[in-house]
């Protein structure tokens, strides 16, 4: 049972890393980024390419930096332009971006599933209540917790974090205080996509690499964002852990319903509390 809970936390941790990027980007740009799963996938492939040369940790760093650059470019060229458009336009454009990124990755690495190795430092298992548990999965939990704590501290205790929280609520008022929200957004979208790269690399050894690997986890991440509350970082953390447990226990005890349980929860939450656990927007 405890091992099942840990496995649920592992998946919840991955979901959090992806969902928090969605929250950051939606907060500043109000863009529902359907390309975020493809950015996660691209990050995993970039990490894989460097890792194949024998540099697993280098792959992690290179992937985050590369995805941050991709994010900044996306913000400057696409998201900034989409800011004043209807939400349906942003959905269509980011969906198109997703297809483009999948096609590019397919052209470079092919459609075949690829195996991402676990770094030697994190190979093996540890005994938890007499049962073996992979060290790598504990690493995934540690990364998610570290990111959650760092992000919370950054948002709560730094000047830029204050501006991000303000701009996520009201970009116009924030701008009138003398803050260049476009520059702020460049930082935030870059951070959000860097986290997509990080989660892609971290998820690599747990999932097989394929050009469509981001699609399923993106849907779960959207459910996390909706349940947690649009724009809420704390809500996303709680919702990711909840969906992780539902995903895991559902697969073990209700396999026939495992895929629909998160959707049922989302529908219930939307009816009971349309703003989600901790959000202020619908």
């Amino acid at each position: 049972m405890f091992i099942q809970i840990l496995n649920g936390i592992v998946y919840g941790g991955l979901l959090y890393l992806l969902a928090v990027g969605l929250v950051l980007i939606f907060g500043l740009r109000e863009v529902v980024n359907f390309a975020h799963g493809a950015l996660f996938m691209l990050g995993a492939y970039i990490g894989f390419a460097v890792s194949a040369a024998g540099y697993w940790w280098g792959g992690l760093v290179v992937s985050m930096v590369a995805m941050a650059i991709v994010g900044c470019a996306l913000d400057a060229t696409v998201f900034r332009t989409l800011r004043k458009q209807d939400h349906i336009v942003t959905v269509l454009v980011t969906f198109g971006l997703m297809l483009i990124l999948e096609t590019v990755v397919t052209a470079i690495w092919g459609k075949a599933y690829l195996r991402y190795p676990v770094p030697p430092l994190l190979a093996g298992t540890v005994d938890i209540f007499g049962e073996p548990f992979p060290v790598y999965r504990l690493f995934v939990i540690a990364v998610a917790v570290a990111i959650a704590l760092s992000l919370t501290a950054w948002l709560r205790f730094t000047r830029i974090g204050l501006y991000v929280r303000a701009a996520s609520t009201d970009p116009r008022i924030t701008s009138i205080q003398g803050i260049n929200v476009d520059s702020l957004s460049l930082i935030v979208v870059g951070l959000g996509t860097a986290l997509a790269g990080l989660s892609g690399v971290v998820a690599g050894p747990l999932l097989s690499l394929s050009p469509t690997m981001g699609n399923y986890i993106l849907i779960d991440s959207f459910i996390v964002v909706v349940i947690g509350g649009l724009g809420s970082f704390a809500g996303a953390f709680i919702a990711a852990l909840l969906i992780g447990q539902i995903h895991n226990f559902g697969a073990v005890y209700l396999p026939w319903a495992a895929t629909i349980l998160p959707f049922l929860l989302m529908v219930g939450i939307l009816i009971w509390r349309p703003t989600g656990f901790a959000g202020s927007r619908t």
Binding site: R165, A166, R172, I173, S175, I176, Q177, V181
Partner: peptide, 27 residues
């Protein structure tokens, strides 16, 4: 731009006050 006035020494108190609701008074 939105920030031009403030960066040039002109502060604006908007109609409706424009308080950011999820920030504290001090923030």
């Amino acid at each position: 731009r939105g920030y031009t006035a403030a960066q040039n020494g002109i502060s604006i108190v908007l109609q409706g006050r424009g308080i950011i609701p999820n920030l504290t008074v001090e923030e």
